[in-house]
Design a protein around this nucleic acid. Structure first.
Length: 758
DNA sequence: CCAAAGATTGTCACA
DNA sequence: CAATCTTTGG
């Protein structure tokens, strides 16, 4: 067991404590993954059958990597039986096996967020509710958090606190929507992400025999990133571990950054209560970063009141100070990043992959991308619109989904008339509404159309029939053909491929290529070895991709690229050089967080995570002016900058003579001085771009105030006209104008009007 | 029924 | 700004 030599004392102790409940508090960069990996290897080498081990990780990628590392220690065949994956994918696997116990088909669909919101929207419409009040987004989040608290629709409606809450917020029908939503998902044979947890919980609750089976299967349970588990996840693992009590959780409360989706730091505290004979290990030595980085990170997290005290330290070099950069605009910030990468790579013989750029919101990536392109620096963006979220891909996947599960309502809505086959909006609406009223799936309804008179024309009925025949013919091939053959067949005989092929616009061409890429992916999938029955079937492929994270579908065509990602998705990763951009108030910390202590502390932990990704060098930058919502707005530097002790920082400024920072700049220690000192002194010659009274109204046009009743104007499309009336104020000023072909109401900020001087 | 233009609205992070 | 929803003209 040579590998045990790689471990320091607390790590070794944690690895060897294999019996009973164990909690490992692992500071950033303290070798947590190594401990987890070795612990599993240690279990296996002590005669524990891998079959009895369950390991829950945060991403599939982490699971895959860990599995590979374990395989290296204990051998391929030993590692094979290990169940390792995300909560969602593991529970989905269990649910597919046990689905009939809860009345679901085993080929159930997993609705993604878009599907769920689209279903909610149609429910809100059918109920005749005002969608200004019942916004699908908000409703979705409310249902999601109910599910994460293990509250189903029936319990929701009965819950007095919740219903009062909904009354007060003006949404008395909330419970009704939840109920309908639950019913529709059930009829469609679909589960959303949260259902994967809730239904697993209900399955175990209602079927003790099933629970018992899995308790005996998973005698050793390990949970990574424990600080980010929510109530439902915790409740389930607690049930699973109840019999054997061999549960080991690994986490760091300082890195809890998913409270917004129900993650509960309290789980760490509860864990101590739930398992009094708990053994706790603390990993505090950081192997990743320089002293400066570790110390700066400690400064940050110290400001939080809610935290377990930890003493993270390192014996690494002191390293460089953190460089702070102030840019005038977001574009300049991008240029700074690109230039630094360019120079550092040149001077120090580095790889592009040694650099990462982290931001708070995905929207910030654009300025960075542009700058990197200008410098010819290859980069890779994680997150944002992933491959599987592109329209053309979702369309084809919708075909696959409905072939596998014809009751899948959202898939059906997507493709029943794409490519156009004469089943229009009106028809579809009728079908959806009738199916909803009768609590059956649309497919079931369509199968009985000849018995139910919906007033559809014979032509439409025939087209529906044709559609169903097509889907059935695809469905008959599910297990007779492998995923690739069936997928290609569907892509061409549905007409989808042809539709895209005929589109010769650049976007159309790229869509066509994307479809080809998807098909290639399926081909690769079919070429993988498998021992499973129907291992290469389309349903298996769909299972595989339903729960992929964008961190998972990594194509390493050229791994030597700069990484761009949100701080959230950087969790668990490390890079030698890390740029943290957009260090501005209202962006980081986000404006939604600054009114609540709790939310602010989560932002601060997020900052902590960002800084601790770096091994050698951290850069912090902010821009004084930034485009948001297409408008240039002014920003103030983030309060977080002032929270790092001055001795770990080096402030570099652009070349323009800016002396005010020369002798102070950033306050040190607890000094809560306003970040204003980063601002450009008056008279520095730099303009406050956004101080223009009307930033939208730029270009050659007239000032907006020139348009008054009686004035003659010229419009690009409608021609000459006379202003009759002007209403509204400022940017939303609207004018009623009489043109030759009638009166029009136009928003002055959009209408390109020219004054006609008389 | 459909495409194109016009209007509106939103963006915090994720499986 | 960009994605999405709504209106409008064919």
């Amino acid at each position: 067991m040579d590998y045990l030599k790689d471990l320091n004392e607390p790590q070794l102790n944690a690895v060897q404590a294999i019996e009973g409940p164990v909690m490992i508090i692992a500071g950033a960069g303290s070798g947590k993954t190594r401990v987890l990996t070795y612990r599993i290897a240690f279990l296996i080498q002590h005669g524990i059958d891998p079959f009895h081990i369950l390991a829950l990780t945060f991403t599939n990628k982490a699971a895959r990597e860990m599995k590979e590392r374990i395989a290296k220690v204990v051998g391929e065949s030993e590692a094979k039986n290990l169940w390792m994956g995300t909560f969602h994918s593991i529970f989905a696997r269990i649910l597919r096996i046990e689905s009939e116990k809860i009345g679901y088909p085993n080929n159930f669909t997993i609705y993604d967020t878009d599907d769920a919101k689209s279903l909610l929207k149609s429910i809100i419409n059918e109920l005749g509710l005002e969608d200004k009040i019942y916004k699908p987004n908000i409703i979705y989040n409310r249902i999601s958090s109910a599910k994460n608290s293990l509250i189903n629709a029936r319990q929701y409606i009965k819950h007095p606190d919740i219903t009062t809450d909904d009354q007060l917020s003006g949404k008395p029908k909330m419970g009704l929507i939840y109920e309908k939503y639950e019913m529709r998902c059930f009829k469609a044979g679909a589960m959303d992400f949260d259902d994967l947890l809730l239904k697993t919980y209900e399955l175990f609750k209602k079927h003790p025999d099933v629970l018992y089976k899995y308790q005996n299967r998973f005698r050793f349970i390990m949970v990574d990133e424990f600080q980010d588990t929510n109530h439902a996840q915790y409740a389930i693992i607690k049930m699973l571990a109840a019999l054997h009590q061999n549960i080991c959780v690994v986490g760091d409360d300082a890195q809890s950054i998913y409270a917004f989706r129900g993650a509960n730091i309290e789980n760490i505290l509860n864990f101590e209560k739930d398992y009094p004979d708990l053994q706790t290990f603390k990993l505090e030595q950081n192997y990743r970063s320089t002293k400066n980085i570790v110390n700066a990170a400690n400064c940050i997290i110290e400001k939080n009141t809610q935290q377990h005290k930890k003493n993270v330290w390192t014996s690494n070099h002191t390293g460089n100070k953190i460089k702070v950069f102030r840019a005038t605009t977001d574009n300049e910030e991008g240029n700074f990043v690109a230039q630094q990468i360019f120079e550092n790579r040149m001077n120090q013989q580095l790889q592009y992959s040694d650099f990462a750029v982290l931001y708070r919101t995905n929207a910030q990536s654009r300025a960075l991308e542009e700058a990197l392109r200008r410098f010819n620096i290859p980069y890779r963006i994680y997150g944002g619109l992933s491959f599987y979220q592109r329209k053309e891909i979702k369309d084809l996947l919708a075909y696959f989904r409905i072939v596998i599960n014809p009751h899948d309502e959202e898939a059906l809505k997507r493709i029943i008339n794409y490519p156009a086959r004469g089943i229009g909006k009106t028809t579809l609406e009728k079908l959806v509404a009738t199916a909803g009223e009768n609590e059956v799936s649309i497919w079931t309804l369509m199968s009985h159309l000849h018995e139910i008179k919906l007033g559809l024309s014979p032509g439409v009925l025939k087209k529906i029939e044709e559609f169903m025949v097509m889907i059935r013919s695809f469905a008959s091939m599910i297990y007779t053909h492998n995923a690739f053959d069936l997928a290609s067949h569907i892509a061409s005989s549905s007409g989808l491929l042809k539709e895209l092929y005929n589109d010769k616009t650049p976007e159309g061409v790229s869509r066509y290529e994307n479809i080809q890429e998807l098909l290639n992916g399926i081909k690769e999938f079919c070429e993988q070895e498998t021992t499973e029955e129907n291992g290469h079937s389309l349903p298996k492929f769909m299972e595989e991709i339903a729960l992929l994270t964008d961190a998972d579908n990594e194509k390493d065509d050229d791994p030597n690229k700069v990484s761009l990602m949100t701080i959230h998705s950087s969790k668990g990763l490390e890079f030698p050089y890390v740029f943290i951009v957009g260090m501005e108030e209202n962006l980081f910390p986000s404006q939604l967080s600054i009114n609540s202590r709790q939310d602010l502390e989560e932002e601060r932990r997020l900052f902590y995570v960002a800084v601790t990704r770096a091994m050698k060098q951290v850069y912090l930058s902010f821009a004084l002016n930034r485009y948001r919502y297409g408008q240039l707005i002014m920003s103030e530097p983030s309060r977080f900058l002032a929270e790092i002790d001055r001795e770990y920082l080096e402030i570099s400024l652009p070349s323009q003579g800016l002396s005010s920072l020369g002798n102070g700049g950033i306050p040190s220690g607890n000094n809560r001085t306003s970040a204003n000192q980063y601002h450009i002194p008056k008279g520095s010659g730099l303009k406050k771009i956004s101080s223009s009274p009307n930033p939208l109204f730029s270009g050659p046009s007239e000032p907006i105030t020139a348009f008054q009743p009686g004035v003659e104007v010229m419009h690009g499309k409608f021609g000459r006209g006379t202003i009759l009336q002007v209403e509204g104020n400022d940017l939303n000023r609207m004018a009623t104008i009489r043109f030759q072909d009638g009166e029009k109401k136009l928003l002055l900020k959009f209408a390109k009007l020219t004054l006609i001087k008389s």
